[in-house]
């Protein structure tokens, strides 16, 4: 399948600061990809480039287009929520729907209305009168009513309480996602999204640290809880990271020999969050 997003040596500089440093990655259609990194790692720069919001160096194609030159056409097939709090305060809910229906060829008004009908929000209210959670619901209803091939979400739940976060992701997976769509999410709250992702891309200091599918994670990575007796033997197997928990040491291996490792302690597949910490801190915690 042709890649939906393809970045080759993608670089973005702000003066002397290099936000993206020759990043290479591809995103295939039908996936839910998490672009994960600490604050200031270059996540937002990568998204801005993908969405045509900034210029960049290197090669980048999104849905077969160059995003910065072709943003208007790209936005026919791609939509994004870059932070939930960006609907202007003066905008009325019904006007927002009218506007998007007026300018977007793939917007389905009935779908937006159905999504909003599930909420307490009435049409004549202005954004400034709505709570942050309600604004999110409006923005989601607007966005999910667009038949887009690619949906990009930048820290979509920032500033939301746990209830709103949960319903946000539930709606995303249950009401929106299907084979024809691709979702790209950035977040630094890894735990929150790890169950819905099919692929993860780790980014740190502008570089791609890891780009893999969740299935691959189980194949490639092993975590072993080792008691102190086996610690030296375990270290010989070249763990890339180790961490102490409750008297035991957990060692992380990439492409380790499962049979050997099983003799040293209890094996399990690291969670995305663990892997993230392990990959990004490099060495001992």
């Amino acid at each position: 399948m042709a890649a939906l997003i393809e970045a080759k040596d993608l670089t973005k500089k702000y003066g002397a600061h290099v936000a993206l440093d020759r990043a290479n990655f591809t995103i295939e259609a039908g996936r839910i990809v998490g672009l994960i990194g600490p604050n200031g790692a270059g996540k937002t720069s990568a998204l801005r480039a993908i969405l045509g919001l900034t210029d960049y160096e290197g090669q980048l194609t999104v849905l077969g287009r160059e995003p910065f030159r072709d943003r208007t056409a790209l936005m026919n097939e791609c939509c994004f929520i870059a932070d939930v709090a960006v609907l202007p305060s003066w905008l009325r809910v019904d006007h927002a729907i009218d506007f998007v229906a007026g300018v977007h060829p793939r917007f389905r008004r009935d779908r937006a209305m159905a999504l909003l009908a599930k909420t307490q929000i009435t049409g004549r209210r202005r954004m400034r009168e709505l709570s942050k959670g309600m604004k999110t619901q409006v923005h989601l209803a607007l966005t999910m009513a667009i038949d887009a091939k690619l949906l990009v979400l930048d820290e979509p739940t920032l500033g939301l309480d746990i209830l709103a976060r949960r319903s946000f992701y539930d709606a995303l997976v249950n009401d929106y996602m299907d084979e024809s769509r691709t979702i790209l999410i950035t977040t630094h709250q890894v735990e929150e999204v790890e169950n819905l992702l099919t692929d993860i891309i780790f980014i740190d200091r502008g570089r791609i640290v890891m780009d893999t599918s969740i299935e691959d994670v189980a194949q490639r990575f092993t975590a072993v809880s080792v008691s102190s007796a086996h610690l030296d033997a375990a270290r010989i197997e070249k763990p890339f990271y180790e961490r102490q928990i409750l008297g035991k040491v957990v060692l992380y291996y990439e492409n380790g020999d499962a049979q050997k490792l099983a003799q040293l302690g209890e094996l399990h597949t690291p969670s995305v969050a663990d892997l993230f910490v392990a990959k990004l801190s490099g060495g001992t915690a």
Binding site: L51, R71, V103
Partner: peptide
Amino acid sequence: DRSILFWKSLPIS
């Protein structure tokens, strides 16, 4: 007010 991020998510040049 950062609403530019909303306007730019629409196919408007």
